[in-house]
């Protein structure tokens, strides 16, 4: 699992590549836990190359959800594969998080 950060003026895009499981969740958690991430208006998660997400992976997003909301930082997921989307949907996270089809919608969100 590889996490690539692409910062721009008010948006940070994180590209996830590989399987997000208990071991790789730590990498992502470190990235999301950085204090200056709250200076962005939006954090976009590009899931095009995210092939699998385990409960530990979901746990990382869940644990930062409140913090992002409190700081008024929008968390937007896009390019999500159907299989990964299903995992978010079953857990009910689709009603809680913004998941859009592509980068265009993500930027507009």
């Amino acid at each position: 699992m590889k996490v690539t950060a692409q910062p721009s003026a008010d948006t940070l895009t994180l590209l996830l590549d590989g399987e997000l499981d208990a071991s790789s969740a730590i990498v992502l958690d470190t990235e999301l836990a950085k204090p200056d991430i709250l200076n962005y208006r939006k954090v976009l998660i590009d899931c095009a190359k995210l092939s699998y997400i385990s409960s530990a992976g979901l746990g990382v997003f869940i644990s930062h959800l409140q913090r992002f909301q409190d700081a008024n930082v929008k968390l937007v997921f896009f390019n999500m594969q159907e299989k990964v989307f299903n995992v978010f949907e079953i857990l009910g996270l689709d009603a809680l998080m913004t998941i859009v089809p592509s980068a265009t919608e993500a930027e507009a969100a």
């Binding site: 869940i62 959800l65 409140q66 857990l91 009910g92 996270l93 009603a95 809680l96």
Partner: peptide
Amino acid sequence: SQGLGLGIIRNESYEKH
């Protein structure tokens, strides 16, 4: 059916989900 996992929202608003 819709329904959110336990421990994700830790306040009263969970009931809406």
